[in-house]
Amino acid sequence: MARKRRKNEYGEAAMPISAMIDITFLLIIFFVVTAAMDKEIEDEAILLSKAPHGKPVVKKDPRSVVVNVRKDGSVNINAVEKSMGEITTTLTVAASKWGNDMPIVIRGDKDVQHYHIRKVMDAITKTGLYRVRFDALIE
């Protein structure tokens, strides 16, 4: 008896790509939605200290200014290196715009000496700002 050959419903040499396209589009939508487009510039050279018991940041205050302090003591805001005088000026301008309760986030390298952090804190005190936070990682 001759054996019947089952015919592929997609025809000869065809691949069922509709399911694959569906999944690919879903993945793209996921990545587009989760991509943080407005993320601030972070200094990748800074290794943050760990604070496993700190409360995770749920919502960042949009007014906050991040001051990066590298291991060698150099200080920058938005990847632009600044002197203490320039930092005071930048913060004074920001404070006049957003108010004295504007938070300042200090991103200090875990190995930087406190002397360099202190200089930033002194500059912040001069401007009249008082809400200072240290950035750290939850493990």
Binding site: L48, A51, G54, K55, P56, V57, P103, V105, M121, I124, T125, L129, Y130, R131, V132, R133, F134, D135, A136, L137, I138
Partner: peptide, 8 residues
């Protein structure tokens, strides 16, 4: 991340 507050 976490933000540790201090008073100035």
């Amino acid at each position: 991340n976490t933000l540790l507050s201090v008073d100035l």
